[in-house]
Write a protein that binds this DNA or RNA. Sequence first.
DNA 1: CAAGATTATACTCATATTGAGTATAATAAG
DNA 2: CTTATTATACTCAATATGAGTATAATCTTG
Lengths: 298, 298
Amino acid sequence: MRENRFMGNQVVETELIAVLVAVTDGDPRVLTIDDGYALPSGLLEPGHRSLQAGLRAWVERQTRHPIGYVEQLYTFADQQRDARGISISYLALSREAPAEYPGASWRSWYQYFPWEDFREESGLLPGILKNLTGWAAGQPERLRRIAGLFGAGAKIWNEELVLQRYELLWEAGLVPEATRHALVAATPAPGKEMLHDHRRILATAIARLRAKIKYRPVVFELLAQEFTLLELQQTMEALAGQTLHKPNFRRFIEAQELVEETGRTTQGLAGRPAKLFRFKSAVLEERSFTGSKLPLVR
Amino acid sequence: MRENRFMGNQVVETELIAVLVAVTDGDPRVLTIDDGYALPSGLLEPGHRSLQAGLRAWVERQTRHPIGYVEQLYTFADQQRDARGISISYLALSREAPAEYPGASWRSWYQYFPWEDFREESGLLPGILKNLTGWAAGQPERLRRIAGLFGAGAKIWNEELVLQRYELLWEAGLVPEATRHALVAATPAPGKEMLHDHRRILATAIARLRAKIKYRPVVFELLAQEFTLLELQQTMEALAGQTLHKPNFRRFIEAQELVEETGRTTQGLAGRPAKLFRFKSAVLEERSFTGSKLPLVR
DNA sequence: CAAGATTATACTCATATTGAGTATAATAAG
DNA sequence: CTTATTATACTCAATATGAGTATAATCTTG
């Protein structure tokens, strides 16, 4: 029952899609092609020894910088195009290098999801909420979802629900990509449109990264070898889209024991010089980094 | 640059692999075929409207019970067989129904990973550790990995590192599946062998589930409509492979506010009758269930 | 039917962690 | 040499967690 039967089975081509992320000047950026309209993607070729090798080989055509960290996001059968393809999406972290492909550019991911940036008051939420509640029109289930995801009070904002928020806007016909599914509103939500489901993939990547930085030391892939604690904090803030409490953030970092002083400090900037730190990569092998929460008995 | 080019691109078939989990009598079980030698898997067929639909359609041939919860695990290019296939693995949760496929059976997952069951002293660890340290033979990096994963002291056991532990044993040639990579030891680690990388996929599923039960209410997919708090606890213990502190576990559950009393109690069993609870499925829409850890400023 | 076994449920309390804020130090700019 | 600016160090109340004890309601058995 496990033999290969090509007769009657679907034989498809495989596309690799990359969400390549970097943080530059407190801005979380993503590598795009077609002037920001699409995520880079390429087809799996016979020469590729593995899926990740294919992705890496492929990404190197567009940026010099080595990709430190690669993680699979999601695989889906592409129904929008020719219904013959399988797409495997990846999240990759690196530092920004010039995009060297025609049409390629690094873009702030908040261009695509402006409502996800809570670091300063954007004033976008009231308009989005008005559109959404109009769509919900007295339907209590929809209203509950809206409240849970876009939270009237803004204090219950959960930064990890990027995908759910995008999907709600999609359902409500408030993003241009929903055109096949619904009548798109005359005044859709702000944010740049993308090809097919690329914005959905980007949302998945953001959500994954926002969740991951809390329990695995992946931020360091986005930082230089040496960095100050403020740079570290601002990189986290860029990803999370929220401002963090400085003293408590430092305590949080110190408690993890993942960084050590280099002995050097910053020079020539305003204010007191900051100590430079480096990531203790040795701990990666020894430690586990899982947020245990169950009340075990010992 | 995004047009379909079949020339020169790899065209492959797609296999769907399911890790279908149920917990029965405090035992975490997984649906297998070939007398426990393989995970159920089927090829994606033209009739399947989506990947998940293909998986569901396919799983229904082997068990009546509807699969409540399905989640994608990982996609990989299969190098072991004909190097032409892509495999997409899924984790599905359900309650155990009779396996109705020839050769199909439900098996405790601890048959495959006996060292992962910490609910009672198994006495297996010393033997495994002896084999592993023999393999590490004075190589400090290997020894550090062994200590971190199999922890000499048994109190630093991290139940989520199922995959890493399996991979370490694989590297050390202590599981039969490693035969292509290494010389398999005369006395390998205990635990039933599986086809190809199926045991690795199972390890991935266990790890994912062990992590997920802590912050998302997925256990309830494995329980009957009504259940006692002890049944809930024992189901969690079965998955986690560890015993939990009863009073604190109840506090943990109550704090989440995910269950409510039905008003009924158990009958005819030893001891004081237990209240029956049900899962408040309504909260699924309203709440977020993400373990925020960052020190936000408000 | 009473005593004991068994399971359920309810509290207690010391310690650790977290949220929120204030105080002091070291530099550059004027 | 004063001020602005950033870095770093503490404080303290509130909350959560780990570990354990006490009491309640049933079944079993002599």
